[in-house]
Computed example of a mutant assay.
Amino acid sequence: MSKTVPTSIRVVQGVAAYEDVEPIDLEPPLHEVVDTDALDALFRSTHDSSVAVEFTYRGTHVRIDDSGEIEVTAATEDPGSSTAVE
């Protein structure tokens, strides 16, 4: 898990890469869809616990596992087609 880049920023980067757009072009911004402060805090403090978060953003399915790996897939696609961000 990246210690220097917050999880919320890595989600934005992952979705932007999946959609082949610049992160600044994502509308609505991630913070209007999920509580980014809570998301960052959750993955900043999961050293000894198992946690995974899944949500839909801009027609994509975003999954973050306990290691902090982010997987982005189309919400209607088989999870076999994805973009992972570590």
Score class of each variant (00 low, 15 high):
residue 1 M to I: 10
residue 1 M to Q: 09
residue 1 M to V: 09
residue 1 M to K: 11
residue 2 S to L: 04
residue 2 S to P: 01
residue 2 S to E: 14
residue 3 K to P: 02
residue 3 K to F: 12
residue 5 V to W: 08
residue 6 P to A: 11
residue 6 P to C: 06
residue 7 T to M: 14
residue 7 T to E: 05
residue 8 S to K: 10
residue 9 I to D: 09
residue 9 I to E: 15
residue 10 R to D: 04
residue 10 R to Y: 03
residue 12 V to K: 12
residue 13 Q to L: 15
residue 13 Q to H: 14
residue 14 G to H: 06
residue 14 G to F: 02
residue 14 G to E: 05
residue 15 V to H: 00
residue 15 V to W: 00
residue 16 A to S: 15
residue 16 A to P: 08
residue 17 A to P: 00
residue 17 A to D: 08
residue 18 Y to D: 00
residue 19 E to Q: 14
residue 19 E to T: 04
residue 20 D to H: 00
residue 20 D to Y: 00
residue 21 V to Y: 00
residue 22 E to K: 11
residue 22 E to H: 13
residue 23 P to K: 12
residue 24 I to G: 11
residue 24 I to W: 05
residue 25 D to S: 15
residue 26 L to G: 11
residue 26 L to A: 10
residue 26 L to S: 14
residue 27 E to H: 08
residue 28 P to D: 09
residue 28 P to Q: 08
residue 29 P to V: 14
residue 29 P to R: 13
residue 31 H to Y: 15
residue 31 H to W: 10
residue 31 H to L: 03
residue 31 H to C: 10
residue 31 H to N: 13
residue 32 E to V: 02
residue 34 V to L: 05
residue 35 D to Q: 06
residue 36 T to H: 03
residue 37 D to Y: 08
residue 37 D to E: 11
residue 38 A to S: 03
residue 38 A to N: 02
residue 38 A to Y: 12
residue 41 A to D: 13
residue 41 A to E: 10
residue 42 L to D: 10
residue 43 F to E: 03
residue 43 F to H: 09
residue 43 F to D: 07
residue 43 F to M: 08
residue 44 R to N: 11
residue 45 S to Q: 11
residue 46 T to N: 14
residue 46 T to L: 03
residue 46 T to R: 07
residue 46 T to H: 13
residue 46 T to P: 00
residue 47 H to C: 06
residue 48 D to V: 02
residue 48 D to F: 07
residue 49 S to W: 04
residue 49 S to D: 12
residue 49 S to G: 09
residue 50 S to H: 10
residue 51 V to K: 05
residue 52 A to C: 04
residue 54 E to H: 01
residue 55 F to W: 03
residue 55 F to D: 07
residue 55 F to T: 09
residue 57 Y to F: 13
residue 58 R to I: 02
residue 59 G to L: 11
residue 59 G to Y: 09
residue 60 T to Y: 02
residue 60 T to C: 15
residue 61 H to F: 02
residue 61 H to G: 10
residue 61 H to R: 15
residue 62 V to C: 06
residue 64 I to W: 07
residue 65 D to L: 06
residue 65 D to H: 08
residue 65 D to Q: 11
residue 66 D to V: 02
residue 66 D to M: 12
residue 67 S to H: 12
residue 67 S to M: 06
residue 67 S to G: 10
residue 67 S to P: 01
residue 68 G to F: 07
residue 68 G to H: 10
residue 69 E to Y: 09
residue 70 I to E: 03
residue 70 I to Q: 08
residue 70 I to C: 07
residue 72 V to Y: 07
residue 72 V to F: 09
residue 72 V to T: 09
residue 72 V to P: 02
residue 73 T to F: 01
residue 74 A to V: 01
residue 74 A to L: 12
residue 75 A to L: 13
residue 75 A to Q: 10
residue 76 T to V: 06
residue 76 T to M: 03
residue 78 D to G: 01
residue 79 P to K: 06
residue 79 P to Y: 06
residue 80 G to P: 00
residue 80 G to H: 04
residue 80 G to E: 09
residue 81 S to P: 00
residue 82 S to M: 04
residue 83 T to K: 05
residue 84 A to T: 11
residue 85 V to M: 14
